[in-house]
């Protein structure tokens, strides 16, 4: 496979590329629309950019951003924990687990999130006291429901439980996407059920699970605007609406809210990129030494391992 410098090297073909007039035409049309829109942003006085500037860092708005983030993160964490549990239950050998998981998904996916939020807001009316004890027997302790399930808790429960049903299906699909041979290889090594799931199956399923879960997180960010149903009144949408009603200037305050949602979404997308790179190890992400400390250590340990960066397959390592 040695390369000799031949005097008669092949003459590279210089062909005339295919022309694409359609691309030029579409570019002109789209750029024209963009230009008109941009011009309107600067010339249309109804946008009231001065008001946008005044309120973008308003205390109420920034607090609203904080609450919206808190609701998003807390309800997603709750949903992810429940979804992993539900997905495991769904593929369990235990028929009671499989059935319970199915019913949970059926119920929480089958009713509107708005309805569920109203319901959690009214839970104290339905069950004034939470108590633990023997059924029909003595009570061990009892609490006022209203003091435990306040508006924040109700909002997180409403959003989280609803989301868990959707995420459970995403996790289930992810677990199913892992080749059966992986389970068998791990079983043949004598690994326990739990270790097989956490160390072998789930990390590979995450490659499939992360992108739709990122999608759901961004969806959740905006679904938090429904917590008015609880009623919870500190989130970004409520805060900007309240300001809009007070100032009679809905458009600039909608823009304020939109800018903040876009900023948070963009940050979440950056986070998702890194999570995807992490779980893409060995498949989409082939940076050997940097991505795993054990191999780096090994490379330092033995002289013969120093060549480990070299590969028989240059076309693969170049990817």
């Amino acid at each position: 496979m040695e390369h000799h410098q031949h005097r008669d090297e092949p003459v590279l073909n210089k062909s005339v590329p295919v022309r694409h007039p359609g691309r030029w035409l579409s570019a002109v049309i789209i750029l024209a629309f963009v230009a008109v829109f941009l011009q309107s942003l600067f010339t249309n006085p109804n946008f009231r950019w001065d008001i946008v500037g005044t309120y973008i860092l308003d205390v109420k708005v920034v607090q609203g951003v904080g609450w919206t983030l808190l609701l998003t993160v807390a309800s997603m964490v709750l949903a992810i924990v429940l979804a992993i549990l539900l997905a495991f239950m769904r593929q369990s050998d235990n028929p009671i687990f499989r059935w319970s998981s199915w019913v949970w998904v059926w119920f929480f996916r089958g009713t509107p999130v708005y309805t569920q939020l109203v319901f959690w807001g009214l839970i104290a009316v339905l069950y004034p006291k939470i108590s633990a004890g023997v059924p029909f027997g003595p009570e061990l302790f009892s609490l006022d429901t209203a003091s435990v399930v306040n508006a924040t808790v109700a909002a997180i429960l409403g959003l989280g439980l609803n989301e868990s049903a959707y995420l459970a299906e995403i996790f289930r699909a992810g677990l199913k996407s892992v080749d059966k041979g992986q389970q068998e290889a791990a079983e043949a090594l004598g690994m326990s059920k739990g270790k097989i799931m956490w160390r072998i199956i789930l990390p590979q399923a995450m490659r499939v699970i992360v992108p739709p879960t990122g999608n759901e997180t961004i969806g959740m960010l905006k679904t938090t605007s429904l917590v008015l149903a609880v009623p919870f009144t500190l989130d970004l949408t409520f805060a900007t609406n309240a300001l809009a009603n007070r100032t009679y200037l809905p458009v600039p305050l909608l823009i304020v809210a939109a800018i903040w949602y876009l900023v948070i979404t963009s940050i979440l997308m950056v986070g998702q990129h890194f999570i995807e790179a992490y779980y893409g190890k060995g498949v989409d992400n082939l940076a050997p030494a940097a991505a795993n400390p054990a191999a780096a250590k090994a490379a330092g340990a033995g002289a013969d391992v120093k060549h480990s960066m070299k590969t028989d397959f240059p076309e693969e390592s170049a990817r």
Partner: peptide, 19 residues
Amino acid sequence: NLFPHKTALQNVMEAPVHV
């Protein structure tokens, strides 16, 4: 059926360490 998310070394180490 190697574990694709683990390096060759990690594949070989997996069971001795975790089993």
